[in-house]
């Protein structure tokens, strides 16, 4: 139940890639920060991140954390979004042998995890090649 509540608090982050934008230096951050990491300003506003980017690097997990076993083998990548922000995410609908560093990707809405057949379902972003 604890995960359900903490996940609920962050749903705009997971559903819509909502980060923040510094009103002073115009840099953007995801996940959101409370103080700008570039200029130290506290003048930050919510900002939806771009949904497209490219793969900086990736790896294939044959063993995952508990609760993700059904999704093995799992592809995890570091994605550089089109605003320069780097984000960790699952890459789906492809196999490792089809991936290359630099491939263009877009964020899609997928199930991240579910607590069995009676618990809650947690949704969020993953990436597919474009």
């Amino acid at each position: 139940m604890k995960l359900s509540i903490s996940y609920w608090r962050l749903k705009d982050r997971y559903y819509r890639l909502v980060g923040v934008r510094c009103e002073e230096c115009k840099n953007e951050f995801f996940p959101p920060v409370y103080v700008c990491r570039r200029c130290g300003s506290r003048s930050l506003t919510d900002k939806e991140m771009p949904k497209t980017g490219k793969i900086l690097t990736y790896t294939e997990l044959k063993e995952t954390l508990a609760g993700f076993e059904d999704q093995e083998p799992m592809l995890l990548g570091i994605i550089q979004l089109d605003n320069g922000v780097r984000i960790l995410g699952q890459i789906v609908d492809t196999a490792a042998e089809n991936l290359s560093i630099g491939d263009r990707v877009k964020a899609v809405f997928r199930k991240i995890q579910e607590h069995g057949s009676s618990g809650q379902i947690f949704y969020g972003y993953k990436f597919v090649r474009t």
């Binding site: 059904d70 999704q71 789906v92 609908d93 899609v108 809405f109 997928r110 199930k111 991240i112 379902i121 949704y123 993953k126």
Partner: peptide, 16 residues
Amino acid sequence: ACIDEDSATMAVEAAR
């Protein structure tokens, strides 16, 4: 639908 897709995820993609 893939293992991580359901009616909610597909509805969101079409709606977007």
